[in-house]
């Protein structure tokens, strides 16, 4: 008997009674209808060690990048984020938009450019926006970090040392 057959057989033999699926959950109205999800996103992004801006109407994207990056411009890689999640400052990046998958983690400085309107309140809505045919996708929330040494937060563990988000008004 193959391992596959043995395991599936043991599962059948366990005869677990049916259990209904998880109830559909959305965040309560307070969060979902929040007047400024961008404000919430940027606040949370600050708490997870990232920085973000909304591009002003009088700025070009280049100017906004220059202002946000300063001296970190060298070594910065700019990638497209598909959408953002207000509750946890995560930005969804899909491998289809990258030259290499390592781009989300290898650069010293990572910049995510996200369309201003592409914002959802919570992960409940976010998972439904993941492309159905994605080969690989990420929710990125702030830069790489560790607290493995006496729980002292150190930003810049093995991945990017900084993570910046620009909301781009199309």
């Amino acid at each position: 008997m193959t391992a596959r057959d043995a395991i599936l057989g043991a599962i059948r033999a366990a005869a677990v009674p049916p259990a209904s699926a998880a109830p559909a959950l959305t965040a309560p109205a307070a969060t979902a209808g929040s007047p400024d999800m961008h404000e919430e996103f940027l606040r949370v992004l600050g708490t997870v060690g990232g920085r973000g801006v909304v591009r002003r109407a009088d700025q070009s994207l280049d100017q906004a990048l220059a202002a946000l990056l300063g001296d970190d411009r060298d070594g910065a890689v700019i990638v497209r984020g598909r959408f953002a999640v207000a509750e946890n400052a995560a930005v969804y990046v899909d491998a289809a938009d990258l030259e290499a998958r390592t781009q989300v983690v290898l650069p010293e400085h990572l910049v995510l450019v996200v369309p201003f309107d592409a914002m959802v309140p919570t992960m409940h809505e976010a998972v439904r926006l993941m492309p159905a045919t994605s080969a690989c996708g990420w929710f990125l929330s702030g830069p790489s970090k560790t607290a493995d040494i006496e729980q002292a937060l150190v930003v810049g563990a093995q991945g990017s040392r900084t993570l910046r988000v620009i909301f781009d008004v199309a």
Binding site: N88, A89, A90, V105, M130, A135, C136, S141, K145, G159
Partner: peptide
């Protein structure tokens, strides 16, 4: 944390 820094969904 509200979510981990990296949440990877890899299918291929």
């Amino acid at each position: 944390q509200p979510v981990t820094a990296y949440t990877t969904h890899v299918t291929s």
